[in-house]
Design a protein around this nucleic acid. Structure first.
Length: 493
RNA sequence: GGCCCCAUCGUCUAGCGGUUAGGACAUCGGCCUCUCACGCCGGUAACACGAGUUCGAAUCUCGUUGGGGUCACCA
């Protein structure tokens, strides 16, 4: 057995992500891109983006755009590829047809590939006949056209003369040595009838021409690897290293697809996830670093290593994902105030809320420990940003009643003269003290007062501490809300 | 079915011959408390099974079972 990839030297990695633009950026694809990107960034290598759009029926420019947008949103920048160019242009396979044709001709002239004139129908018929005779038999292309004369004018596909003796092995950076008997192979098609290359052929040529020295992709490509290695050898090229990643399965263990909910990166963007929240969850899926769960972008780059990538497939867990994202929103070290404000802004606009940046920043410490994503943050921000809060009907009925008017009025009057009014949520302690002594002095209980005040200020029964809210709202707005609540109590009661 | 791969709490995982099998999410209690949240403390919960190797296996070998991938003129 000839072992590919075993003794590759260790130059700067040149890795690639090669999506097929037939939809959106799949969450599993994003992880593949991430691992490649991390490796390139860690070692100062290059991350190449190549668009595999040879199947014109399934590819679209909208899809290319969606994928590039998602990559940019995640911050997975590429050193070569669409938009940035590079020394190995073009980076769209649909612009490289001449290259594939030329290499195909080379293999044919060297006797390593041949034109096959069999039609799909003929092959199907042969397969059916074999099945009829022996249901368990495995149909393989019988080599009908292997030694038939070359007739380029006839409609044909081009097949690679695959070896049938021995085996093809490679040393995977994740799975170790994978050895596949060649007798399993058949003369596979490298060029379609319409002259367009098939995946295995185009990928090999591009990876070689683009100097890719490590191909990292999903485990579903393991079976393609022997084919590709055969092609490298046929061309006399050194195969790159390979690293295959375990699969991301649905919570039920099935292949992850749209029916399982959110699988497109853009779905998470729309839900208000943070790019680093997404990246962090994906990084920890099939890879670990001791007990560490939360990573900044730089920590990920520093810590990433193929030796810590696992082999077992995993099941997707939305709850864990949400929590990792939450962790990134909570910690200012991971999402600083500027980033937070910038990310939440479009969601505020979408909700039609006034984007009062000063007040948003003032409320941020309160929001951070409550909002699980930026969309959720808008909900928590809502009552700070309106003139008056939207009253929750049940809350109003229960707490803004005649009996509470007096408590609210007294609270309002007492704190109207309080000075200094806290300008920061961290400065509310004096007000808390004042509240306690006021309650004692007037014979009121916290229970009697707190919830009515809360509803008055926020329109809700759940919110941050009373004085934290008041410090964000400011004196005037707070008092106005209390006044309005007193009116509501009297009118409603 | 052929070939390939995988197997630790429900989930993501640590473990790389000797551990009370650890962490995180989820879940269940409790503390904190003006509500919510954060935070803190604690509980339930795993080595798929069977043979070996070894003084000693979650760790090594083989088998069984289970799961996944792949067998296109898709990628």
């Amino acid at each position: 057995m000839l072992l590919a990839g075993a003794m590759a030297s260790d130059p700067k990695p040149r890795v690639r992500f090669a999506p097929s633009p037939s939809g959106y950026l799949h969450i599993g694809g994003a992880r593949t891109a991430l691992f490649n990107w991390l490796w390139a960034r860690k070692l100062g290598g290059s991350f190449v983006l190549r668009v595999e759009d040879t199947d014109q029926d399934r590819s679209s420019m909208e899809s290319v755009q969606a994928i590039l947008d998602a990559m940019r949103w995640l911050g997975l920048d590429w050193d070569e590829g669409p938009g940035v160019g590079g020394p190995h242009e073009p980076y769209f396979q649909s612009d490289r047809k001449a290259i594939y044709r030329q290499h195909c001709e080379q293999l044919i002239s060297e006797g390593k590939a041949f034109r096959c004139y069999c039609t799909k129908e003929e092959l199907d018929a042969q397969r059916a006949a074999l099945k009829a005779e022996n249901p368990k038999a495995q149909f393989k292309y019988p080599g009908t056209c292997r030694d038939r004369g070359d007739q380029p004018d006839l409609p044909h596909v081009v097949r690679f003369k695959a070896p049938t003796e021995g085996s093809t092995a490679f040393d995977d950076k994740v799975f170790g040595i994978i050895d596949t008997p060649n007798k399993e192979q058949q003369d596979f098609v490298i060029m379609r009838r319409d002259g367009l290359p098939l995946y295995n052929f185009a990928a090999v040529i591009d990876d070689h021409l683009m100097d890719i020295n490590l191909v990292a992709r999903g485990r579903d490509h393991i079976g393609n690897t022997p084919h590709q290695i055969m092609l490298y050898r046929a061309f006399g090229w050194e195969p790159p290293d390979f690293a295959h990643l375990p699969m991301m399965l649905s919570p039920k263990g099935e292949k992850l697809s749209k029916r399982h909910g959110h699988v497109a990166v853009q779905d998470y963007e729309a839900r208000g996830y943070s790019p680093m929240g997404v990246l962090n969850y994906l990084a920890r899926f099939g890879w670990s670093f001791g007990d560490q769960e939360i990573f900044s972008r730089q920590q990920l780059i520093d810590a990433f290593d193929w030796t810590r990538v696992n082999r077992g497939d995993g099941k997707f867990d939305d709850k864990k994902f949400a929590d990792v994202n939450f962790e990134h929103l909570k910690q200012p070290e991971l999402t600083d105030d500027d980033a937070y404000v910038a990310r939440v802004k479009p969601f505020l606009e979408e909700a039609g809320l006034e984007h009062d940046e000063v007040r948003v920043r003032a409320a941020l410490p309160l929001i951070r420990e409550r909002a699980r994503d930026f969309r959720d943050a808008v909900n928590h921000l809502d009552f700070y940003l309106r003139e008056f809060p939207v009253m929750d009907e049940k809350a109003q009925r229960k707490f803004l009643v005649a009996d509470n008017a007096e408590h609210l009025q007294a609270f309002r009057d007492h704190f109207a003269s309080f000075a200094p009014w806290p300008s920061d949520v961290g400065q509310v302690e004096p007000m808390n003290e004042a509240l306690k002594s006021w309650l004692e002095g007037t014979g009121r209980s916290m229970k009697q007062v707190a919830q009515p005040v809360r509803v008055a200020l926020t329109g809700r029964t759940a919110s941050p501490g009373l004085f934290e809210v008041m410090s964000v709202l400011g004196r005037e707005r707070s008092l106005a809300r209390l006044d309005r609540a007193v009116e509501l109590c009297r009118a409603g009661g």
